[in-house]
């Protein structure tokens, strides 16, 4: 690994200042993506800014209509959170399916959301639940946050501090795991709110995306049968050695149905 400077700021403004001073430096939360990248010498930032000592970035809180998850909360903590399990069990279930137990003990929600890997789980939950990404500077709606392959709306110097999730009436997540990597070959998050249904897909294309025809159909009738005949266009889907685009398109429908089924039989994630 190439050498780098290392900062462990104690306050968010200090972290932001460090980042502004050295724009090529990298923020590190759990490091589950960044560290392998550094090990393979694919990146050589001059400095790492470790967020682990920043106060107030861990844990889950709620008010009437939302749950807020601190940026540095690990996947394991979300999966086990009694609050999340009680109010958005599908989100706890999603977190419990990321990587493996060791990865879940280090990986964080802000890392996953900021990295925006096209096959990561969290982007589907964040977009499907119409969450709000809270940074040190502003709030960004999920619909405006994810910008395609590893790209987000975050500006240089901006640090995610929390993600706020509206609590849905029902929600479900269904993931078809890539057998080797355990990332989502296709993952679909479905959430039913008073004012409609949202369907977000990860793994299938270069970034997480919504499926309006399915949202419309499910708003009419929240049942797997409502979307069974909906096929999504293969044009922007990924083809690789694990799955061709038409197979991914097919899986989107299958996983969407299963997510709806999971939502209907919703129970706290095990």
């Amino acid at each position: 690994m190439k050498a780098f400077a290392y900062h462990q700021p104690g306050q968010i403004p200090e972290a932001a200042k460090l980042l502004a001073a050295e724009p090529d430096s990298k923020l590190v939360a759990g490091g589950m993506t960044l560290i392998p990248t550094l090990k393979q010498r694919l990146a050589s930032p001059p400095a790492l800014i470790d967020l682990s000592k920043l106060p107030g970035l861990k844990g889950c809180t709620d008010n009437d209509a939302t749950i807020t998850i601190g940026a540095m909360t690990t996947h394991a903590e979300v999966a086990k959170s009694s609050l999340v399990r009680a109010r958005i069990p599908a989100l706890a279930a999603l977190a419990s399916q990321i990587g493996d137990p060791s990865v879940r003990n280090r990986g964080t929600i802000c890392g996953s959301v900021a990295n925006n890997d096209p096959a990561a789980d969290y982007p589907a939950g964040v977009l499907g639940l119409a969450a709000t990404i809270i940074t040190n500077e502003r709030e960004i709606a999920a619909d405006n946050f994810f910008r395609g392959l590893f790209e987000t709306a975050l500006k240089p110097g901006e640090i995610i501090t929390a993600v706020r999730f509206p609590v849905p009436l029902l929600a479900g997540y269904a993931k078809f795991k890539a057998p080797a990597s355990r990332y989502a070959l296709v993952g679909v998050f479905v959430a039913k709110f008073r004012d409609g249904v949202r369907v977000a897909v990860t793994g299938a294309g270069p970034g997480v995306f919504r499926v309006p025809p399915m949202e419309h159909a499910l708003s009419q009738g929240f049942d797997p049968a409502s979307i069974a005949a909906i096929r999504i266009d293969t044009d922007n889907l990924t083809s690789d050695i694990h799955a061709e685009a038409d197979y991914r398109a097919h899986l989107v429908t299958v996983m969407a149905k299963r997510a709806v089924q999971a939502a209907l039989s919703e129970r706290p994630a095990s």
């Binding site: 790492l48 470790d50 280090r106």
Partner: peptide, 12 residues
């Protein structure tokens, strides 16, 4: 808690 030490920097 179990973690993968190959993906953990010593400062942690």
């Amino acid at each position: 808690a179990p973690v993968k030490s190959c993906t953990l920097l010593a400062p942690a």
